[in-house]
Design a protein around this nucleic acid. Structure first.
Length: 423
RNA sequence: GGAGAGGUGGCAGAGCGGUUGAAUGCACUGGUCUUGAAAACCAGCAAGGGUUUGUAGCCCUUCGAGGGUUCGAAUCCCUCCCUCUCCGCCA
């Protein structure tokens, strides 16, 4: 959510910024609502103030044994006016809130302008695209040939976009997760968390998946409004919601492995085959909670931590800054890390590292006390995959394949796998 | 699933339906004292919002959430959520 004060003071500036995303903000409608709100609210508080003072007078009169009939009468008149006022005011407030929750975050100046992903800006690349002296296969063919991947059975058991891994391929995914968690906790000083995989709607409003993107989520059919998490970002970030965090503990660095569940509505036809786009996938998620001054640095460090996973695995990748047309709703700046996939002969997203500024914090009331001013301020939130385990599995399988269809194990995973090759 | 207890400020913990935004203690901040520290003593110390040039003043809201009763609700009633204890079941 954007700062409502800024929204009022510099609405045109904000509208122009949001226009870079291609978002049309009907500022006139909002300004009109706010004008009405102002009028009604002043009237509302004025009425309440009068009623409060009359009630106080009644209290005093009663203690003296005086007659209170007239006072009560005028108080009742105020109440009649008040209830009319309140129904109008509440209607306006809820309209305004609906608009405010639907406004995306403003973009940093450094976000490259553009309509879509073709305008993303290449920041850096690492490693050379893997060279083969044979025609490399994709992970589906490799997995099938090894008898370790069964997408047909998965779709029979559940439906499309699910997978069954077995044997050493299942172990490889577990090894990747274990390796990533160890790297982040031991070398990058993150604290590991185990968190719920099911969250309530309020938490999703906090991290800004709701109310706008409900169709991307799996909702659980029960009397409570429960959802499967689309990313561990939701429970991890909400750990800081509705409380005032001690400033001396910032920045906080959190990591968790969780499965992630996404409905992938609207992605029909994209990545329909294989493990790239699944309804359920494993991910190691990095979250940092920082002060406003520290948040840019936090984004850079978090991104480098995600990159280190790929460096250790010796997987070639590039880092791009998402353009104004490709960046997510709540993000003010995003780096995508894209890993080289020989099977597709493309770089594909394996991590997305975003700075949200106070956008999420404001929604979930995640605050800290600024020791300088003594005032409560919103924290800044940063998160990124470190990295998506399902896609890392694809990357390892495709980049480490050998002519005979076997898969070499990256050095970094050998201790976890206990074997040097999958065949 | 059955029975009971409870949700109040950063924490602990009071609170007859009427100047209670809320006693008290701890924590915190400032001061006095001290060579310094501790102790003691004094003072301050919730948040959000509106108005405003204003970190001044004034006003509104907030005692788990939402409704209701009332001129007036932290206090009474209803619904929901959560926590705790005991019993049952269970990975």
């Amino acid at each position: 959510m954007l700062d409502p004060k800024k929204l009022r003071q510099s609405i045109d500036e904000i509208a122009n910024n949001l226009a870079r995303r291609g978002f049309k903000f009907d500022t006139k409608a909002y300004v009109n609502l706010n004008d009405d709100r102002k009028k009604l609210q002043i009237e509302n508080e004025d009425l309440k103030s009068k009623r409060n003072s009359i009630s106080r007078d009644i209290g005093m009169a009663k203690s003296k044994g005086d007659d209170t009939g007239d006072l009560m009468k005028s108080s009742e008149e105020i109440n009649t006016a008040l209830s009319e006022n309140e129904s109008q005011l509440n209607e306006i407030l809820s309209k305004m809130r609906e608009i405010e929750l639907g406004l995306p975050n403003t973009l940093m100046k450094t976000v490259p302008d553009g309509k879509d992903e073709t305008s993303n800006e290449l920041i850096r690349s690492w490693g050379e695209k893997t060279v083969f002296d044979f025609e490399p296969k994709d992970h589906i063919e490799l997995g099938n040939n090894l008898g370790l991947l069964d997408l047909d059975k998965a779709s029979e058991i559940s439906g499309s976009r699910f997978s069954v891994l077995n044997g050493k391929l299942a172990t490889l995914q577990r090894a990747l997760i274990q390796f990533m968690l160890d790297l982040h906790t031991n070398k990058h000083a993150y604290e590991e968390f185990y968190v719920p995989y099911i969250v309530n709607g309020q938490s999703l409003v906090g991290t800004s998946q709701l109310p706008k993107f409900e169709s991307d989520l799996f909702k659980i059919d029960s009397d409570k409004s429960y959802y499967l998490i689309p990313t561990a970002e939701v429970p991890l970030t909400n750990l800081f919601g509705n409380k005032i965090t001690d400033a001396s503990t910032l920045p906080r660095k959190l990591v968790a492995h969780t499965p992630c569940f996404r409905s992938e509505a609207g992605s029909y036809g994209q990545d329909t085959k294989g493990l790239i786009r699944q309804h359920q996938f494993e991910k190691v998620e990095l979250v940092q909670i920082a002060t406003p001054n520290g948040s840019l640095e936090a984004l850079e460090s978090l991104t480098s931590h995600a990159e280190n996973v790929l460096k250790e695995l010796k997987l070639p990748y590039q880092v791009v800054a998402l353009s104004s047309g490709d960046i997510g709703f709540g993000s003010t700046f995003t780096y995508d890390i894209e890993v080289w996939l020989p099977g597709q002969k493309k770089y594909r997203e394996i991590s997305s590292c975003s700075l949200f500024g106070d956008f999420q914090a404001r929604r979930m009331k995640a605050r800290y006390k600024d020791p300088e001013t003594g005032k409560n301020e919103f924290v800044h939130t940063i998160n990124g995959s470190g990295v998506a385990a399902g896609r890392a599995l694809v990357a390892v399988v495709e980049n480490y394949q050998q002519k005979d269809g076997s898969i070499k194990i990256p050095d970094a995973l050998k201790d976890y796998m206990k074997v040097d090759v999958i065949n």
